[in-house]
Design a protein around this nucleic acid. Structure first.
Lengths: 343, 343
DNA sequence: TTGTACGCGTTATCAG
DNA sequence: CTGATAACGCGTACAA
């Protein structure tokens, strides 16, 4: 009974090898390193595999080789457009590589992150991409124990677990405030939702920049831990106006909030930017098409994803070309919503 | 040398068992079915595992058991907010289950889908969630060969591979047109981008509804295969106006386009809804906060994701409670952007 | 309730 | 360039 089938009806390497008239190990080599085979056998194995519809068993492969071709990705949110862009970059970049992506959602919880990290540990991923730099000590030790390349994304900072690609949220926010100050605005409000670590750093940037200008006033700040949304931008802005009716500008920690503020201004017949300047953060696609166009800080989210994948994959293959910490920077996209008063 | 380590330095089940003073199979049972152990051994294994920091090897588990606890998910896009919501539902629902999600991006290509389906085949997923009903014949046979529960999402239709959860894009669009007609609009334009199968069905719904009303005119239709965006809404609307200057309403295949149309109207000082009614599709969060609020067709994207997960997981465990095809319906959210002329 | 024997499909190692 | 042999770590089936 040559070529007996496995219980599940699946074709194994052995069956392919038998049909090709080679040993199973030769067939195995064909899939990992075809060049190592003589042309003759290479063709025989190839056609045998095709004829039988052979599908390699990834579990067996992982068990025997102690590795997988999976890059684990931990990201805190799916709702947030920012992460959607990063993920898109990650998935796009992964397509030109041999690795596949295993993405999990930490829901902004570092405990959930820790749990998922352990789950990844059980899977022996080839590499890891994690969001931010605020992991628990336990998470850090799990990561260090995993001995695979790891890239932290979204931020830059000291003491990377391994590699990093991001930008300084602090600096980006300072740049936005400097812009508003340069345009002559003085009572600049701050609107923040979903106060994750990166948003916190933006708040710090805002606070310090305002203090440096001698303009800091806690009443100019409105934040909420709840998630962000366009509608929320309107309600938070209403709160801010109630608290500080004399504001002449508002910096929003993201573009959804900024859009909500714009609509709220339209509703209240507050002229933008004549009576109220608006600045967002991230520069989502729609910011350039609003009326008036909204100023924002462009962040390189998509590229962050692609770079992260490139960095891990290169590291997996033993050649680390870039510096361990890559700063992708940002760019202030000054638009009409923040032009100087009287212009 | 009791308790010898594996080469990779990882702790195995055997080590845990030795420390607990039981056989490895008892330790194995502890992880799969703790109730089957005596209390005594259960505790011994538990503490041994904790002490050693045991991490189960998923590959070995999958190889030995011929199954995994992974649900594969194929979705065409990450950029599209619609899918972000579906994915969120999927991930949220998966958290209360034992299964983890393996998501891949088909990029609106049924060939890519076919390839990814084969890749999943190699992984023996416990279940599958695929988008839409327009798979290639090859994809269908791969799916049928995988003998795991499969849910097609986003649409309803005849001939499910296994199960389905979605709604009728055709009916939803007909409802939107009926609404506009009821409000007295007659020259209703259609704006479509990224003409995927579901958008095509919306176009059919539009065309038939307009024909039924004796109002169909090909010049009222503008479509483009390129991807959707707020900015694109503005440019497509400009094209539509050039082609049919007398339109009094416009139906957009999604909310991003509708938002772009609204901004273009603001730019051109076209009063909404007095001179131009606008209706979107999906009812994203921001539709209620624009000025004026935009009418849209609410679709149950998040629930689609959660239901899909529930349906696969129940099927995996052998109890199929719901009908094989679930229609989640839709709801017309009539807002100010489409109120009758003169109201 | 617990344990024994064996197999899962592949790759690593080393010899030829 | 090719092949034999021995893992890889765990679960299944059955026996005790």
């Amino acid at each position: 009974m040559a070529r007996k089938r496995t219980k599940s009806g699946k074709i194994r390497l052995t069956e392919v090898a038998q049909l090709a008239g080679v040993s199973h190990i030769t067939a195995s080599r064909f899939f990992r390193n075809p060049e190592a085979l003589s042309l003759d056998k290479r063709e025989r194995v190839e056609s045998a595999a095709k004829e039988l519809g052979y599908v390699p068993n990834l579990a067996a492969r992982a068990l025997a080789s102690h590795r997988t071709e999976v890059i684990g990705v931990l990201i805190p949110s799916l709702t947030n457009n920012v992460f959607a862009d990063v993920l898109r970059g990650i998935y796009d970049a992964s397509e030109t590589s041999r690795y596949s992506i295993q993405f999990v959602n930490t829901r902004y919880s570092i405990l959930q992150e820790e749990k998922l990290l352990r789950l990844f540990q059980a899977q022996m991923p080839a590499g890891l991409i994690v969001t931010g730099i605020n992991q628990t000590p336990e998470s850090r030790s799990v990561m260090e124990a995993m001995n695979c390349p790891i890239v932290q994304i979204m931020e830059t900072g000291a003491d990377p677990v391994d590699m990093m690609v991001g930008f300084s949220h602090y600096d980006a926010t300072v740049a936005a405030i400097s812009h508003l100050l340069a345009q002559g605005f003085r009572r600049i409000g701050f609107l923040g939702a979903r106060m994750d670590p990166r948003v916190q750093r933006r708040l710090e940037g805002y606070s310090n920049a305002m203090k440096a200008a001698g303009l800091f006033d806690p009443r100019l700040i409105i934040t909420t831990p709840v998630s962000t949304a366009v509608t929320r931008g309107g309600t938070l802005f209403a709160d801010l106006l109630a608290q500080a009716p004399d504001i002449d500008a508002v910096l929003c920690v993201n573009d959804d909030l900024a859009l909500g503020v714009l609509f709220e201004c339209q509703r209240r017949h507050i002229a933008v930017p004549e009576q109220m300047a608006i600045v967002g953060f991230n520069d989502l696609e729609f910011m350039a098409s609003t009326v008036p166009p909204l100023t924002s800080v462009r962040t390189n989210r998509y590229e962050m994803g692609t770079r992260a994948v490139i960095m891990v994959t290169e590291a997996i293959e033993g050649r680390r070309t870039s510096a361990p910490v890559v700063d992708l920077g940002f760019e202030l996209m000054a638009r009409q919503s923040s032009v100087a008063r009287g212009n």
